[in-house]
């Protein structure tokens, strides 16, 4: 019972810092993200592959001299955003691994001891992976749009570079991948297992839409088609679709505007992140 008299002596050297801050947690998550080789590889693939695919498409367009400007614009935007279909798979894996890599190695315990309130750590992870994915994807899409311009011109495609619809598609593509990375993070947090998390995200992106398509093909069910419209990949795909006023949706089929696609995907991300946060807070680590 001699505690009161046992003074804690002044510390020799302060390690600096006063408290946990959200800025600090963001910095911590950024350090974590960039200090793993797997991250660097994923980001490199997300950057390089769309550029390569754009060149591939630009080189195989064939002679299109004389086609309308609208079609030229469409070819340009499509070649720049073609790689997103591939990048989304890598983004999904990266987003899952950001958290499941911590569970499989035990790092999560260090993370949660440093940030015992837990939710800020998840939020910081989402912001960091989302922002980094957005920037890398945007750089990749822009490079994919502008580097092959010469090749496109030789095929007779001379796009209007100031076309706002094209720029919205480029931004939308990067935004889609950014939101997808946070969706994958949320699913990884819920599942806590790399293989399971990746399977779940890819199932949501690839398998579920295919199942619905088969259902539509067999039964012609309208509801299945419309459910498919609201899945993350379809809704997100609208974010980088090249939309001009000239295009009109066929009657009876639900087609989301790009901003509606953004809203739907954001709703997916928000709902899954909320569930992930709830589980992270409640579960033993």
């Amino acid at each position: 019972m001699s505690t009161a008299s046992t003074a804690i002596p002044a510390r020799a050297a302060s390690p600096g810092g006063s408290a946990v801050s959200f800025g600090g947690i963001l910095r911590s998550e950024a350090i974590k993200l960039f200090s793993l080789r797997s991250t660097i590889w994923c980001l490199a693939i997300i950057f390089v592959v769309p550029i390569g695919l754009a060149f591939l498409l630009a080189g195989t367009v064939g002679d299109t001299v004389g086609i309308p400007q609208d079609a030229q614009q469409s070819i340009w935007v499509q070649s720049a955003t073609l790689g997103i279909g591939f990048s989304q798979l890598v983004v999904a894996v990266l987003g899952v691994l950001v958290i499941t890599g911590e569970y499989s190695t035990g790092m999560i315990r260090s993370t949660l001891v440093a940030v015992p309130r837990r939710i800020p750590a998840l939020l910081a992870k989402a912001l960091v992976i989302g922002a980094v994915t957005f920037l890398v994807a945007l750089a990749s899409i822009l490079a994919a749009a502008f580097l092959p311009l010469g090749l496109l011109a030789s095929s007779g495609v001379q796009p209007d570079l100031g076309d706002p619809a094209a720029w919205w598609a480029f931004l939308g593509g990067a935004g889609y991948l950014a939101l997808l990375s946070t969706l994958a993070l949320a699913i990884g947090t819920i599942v806590r297992n790399s293989a399971g998390g990746i399977a779940a995200v890819l199932g949501l992106l690839l398998v579920l839409p295919t199942v619905l398509q088969i259902l539509v093909a067999i039964t012609g069910a309208e509801w299945a088609r419309n459910v498919g419209t609201f899945l993350p990949d379809s809704a997100g795909g609208r974010m980088f679709a090249y939309v001009t006023e000239a295009q009109a949706a066929p009657a009876g089929v639900l087609v989301l505007e790009p901003w509606q696609g953004l809203l739907v995907l954001s709703a997916w991300v928000t709902a899954l992140l909320l569930l992930a946060a709830l589980l992270l807070k409640r579960r033993d680590a």
């Binding site: 390690p15 810092g17 006063s18 408290a19 801050s21 974590k32 200090s35 890599g101 790092m107 260090s110």
Partner: peptide, 23 residues
């Protein structure tokens, strides 16, 4: 083993330190 195996010791400690602004 509460450490990510793919990260260096320095980066592991840097990441933990960053949360508290430890120099």
């Amino acid at each position: 083993k509460a450490v990510h195996t793919g990260r260096s010791a320095t980066n592991h400690l840097r990441a933990l330190a960053a949360t508290h602004g430890i120099r």
